[in-house]
Design a protein around this nucleic acid. Structure first.
Lengths: 243, 243
DNA sequence: GCACGGTTCCAACAAAAGTTAAGGACGCGG
DNA sequence: CCGCGTCCTTAACTTTTGTTGGAACCGTGC
C-alpha cells in the first residue's frame, strides 16, 4: 500500500470529525508512520504495557477490551480504518486495557515523540487530536448505556447500527449488508452477555425477520424494526465539526 | 468561600493527576471563575445543550447520566470536588449527556473562551487538561467492565471503592466510613439494575457483614471481603503523573 | 478425503434480575 | 403534632440470562 493511501485514511477521518485546515493536513501528512501487518486475533498493545507509539488502523478491524482476574473479558469498542484507538496512550502512558486485531490488519505506528512535537508546534492539530479522544470517550458513554440499560436484542442492534454508521462515514458501506467480524463469543463480550445468550439473541432477531448475521456479515431484513429496536441516536458520535 | 479556596481544589486535583509546574499553577489560578450554588438533584447542563462554560465542582457531589427514550436512566460517573466533569464540552460543544448535582453543591464556572486562550498560550497546561479528560475516559472504560461483567454485588462494591479512593486522593476520607450520597434508585441507575434489586444487593452485603450503607454513608465492616468482592485494580485511575 | 479445531446452534435446567404491589420509616412543612 | 411525600424494605411471581452439555457445521491442513 502506498504511503499516501495510508495517510489518506487518517486525514479522511479527521476531516469528518474536525474542521481541519489545509496547512494542518500537510503537518499530519508529514508524520513518520511505520507500517506493519498483523494476523487476526492478535494483541497490538497489552494492558499494563507502556506504549511508545500510537497505532493507526490502515486496514482491518480492531477491538479494545479488558480482562478481569476471573478471566471474563469485556469488549469496550470496535475500531475501523482511519482510527487511532490508542491515542490516549500519548498521555496515559501505561495501558489500562488491551488493543487487539479482530481480522488480519494493516497498522501504522506513529511515535509519541513525533506526535508530541507536532502539537506543541501546532495547537490546532493538538485540538483536533484532543477532540478525537473526546469522541472516543463519548462512545464509551453510549456503550455504558447500551450494556447497562438496554435488553440484549437492543444492545446487539445498537452496536450494529453504530458500526454501520461509522463505516458509512469512511465510505466503506458498499451494499445493504456490512462487515461485523466478531464471533458470537466476542459479540457476547461486547454486549455483556454469554456466548450462548448471544446466540439466542441472534436467532431471535433472525426469526423475527429483523436482521441476519452470517459469518461476520450483517444483513438488515427490516430497516424500520431494526432502527426501532436499536434506539439509535447518533448525536454522541459528534460527526459535525461545527457542533 | 474565598476565591483561593475555590482554586485550591482544582490545583490539588491537577497536582495529583499530572506533573504540574509552578508557573502553570499561576496560569490556572488566574482563570476567572464565577461561583454559583446549586440545590441537590438539579441539572447543571443538559443533554443536547450547547455549553459555553466548564464546571468546576468546588463542593458537593455531581453525577453524569443519559436518559433513554423509554425513560430509563444510566448514571455514567460520579464526581467530587476538584473535578471538572464537563471539560469535554470545550471541544464537544453540544452535550451528549446530563450533568446534575446529587447534593447541594458549590460550582465554579470557567468560560470556554478563557480555557481556550490559556492553552493556546501554554501547551503544557493544555496537556494537563487533556490528560484529565483521558483519565475520565479511562474511568468510563472501567465502568463498562463493571456493568458488563461483574455480578451486581461486585458492581456495587467496585463503585464504592472507586469513590473511596478518589475521596482519599483529595483528602476527604475522614474516618472508616465515607459519603456516597445516592438513593437506592440512583445506585440502581449506576449499576444497571433496578432499584428493587439494588435494595436486595445492599441487604445481602449488609447481612454478609461486608459493608453497611445508611443514608448516603458507607461503612465497611470487613475490609478483606470488601476488596475481594470488588476486584478493584486502581491502575485505571492513572494517579501517578509519571506513569 | 478425512480428521481436527473452532464455531454455531440448541435444549434443559439453574440462577440472577425485573415486575408488581404493599407496608413501614423518616423528614418536612403546615 | 399531624399529614404527606420520598425513600427504604420486603415478598411473590415472571422474565431474562447463565450454565452445562452435546450435536451439527465448516474451513483448513494433512
Amino acid at each position: 500500500m502506498p504511503s499516501d493511501a495510508i495517510r489518506a485514511a487518517l486525514i479522511e477521518r479527521l476531516r469528518v470529525s474536525s474542521a481541519i485546515a489545509e496547512e494542518d493536513i500537510r503537518e499530519v501528512e508529514a508524520l513518520p508512520i511505520s507500517v506493519r501487518q498483523f494476523p487476526a486475533e492478535t494483541a497490538v498493545v497489552r494492558d499494563g504495557e507502556r506504549a511508545t507509539d500510537c497505532c493507526l488502523i490502515v486496514d482491518g478491524f480492531c477491538a479494545r477490551s479488558k480482562t478481569l482476574a476471573n478471566g471474563k473479558r469485556q469488549i469496550l469498542s470496535l475500531h475501523i480504518p482511519g482510527e487511532i484507538p490508542d491515542l490516549m496512550s500519548l498521555f496515559l502512558h501505561v495501558m489500562d486495557h488491551d488493543l487487539s486485531t479482530l481480522t488480519p490488519a494493516t497498522l501504522g505506528f506513529i511515535s509519541h515523540e513525533a506526535l508530541q512535537k507536532l502539537h506543541r508546534r501546532s495547537p490546532r492539530v493538538a485540538e483536533m487530536f484532543w477532540r478525537d479522544t473526546l469522541i472516543d470517550s463519548a462512545m464509551f458513554r453510549e456503550w455504558i448505556v447500551n450494556v447497562g440499560q438496554r435488553p440484549a436484542p437492543a444492545r446487539l442492534a445498537h452496536v450494529m447500527i453504530e458500526l454501520r454508521e461509522r463505516l458509512r462515514m469512511i465510505g466503506r458501506l458498499d451494499s445493504d449488508s456490512f462487515e461485523m467480524p466478531l464471533t458470537q463469543e466476542q459479540i457476547g463480550e461486547a454486549l455483556g452477555i454469554t456466548a450462548v445468550h448471544a446466540n439466542r439473541v441472534i436467532r431471535q432477531l433472525r426469526q423475527e425477520g429483523i436482521v441476519e448475521l452470517n459469518r461476520g456479515r450483517v444483513t438488515v431484513l427490516d430497516e424500520r424494526k431494526f432502527q426501532e429496536l436499536a434506539d439509535f441516536e447518533p448525536r454522541y458520535l459528534h460527526q459535525s465539526p461545527t457542533l
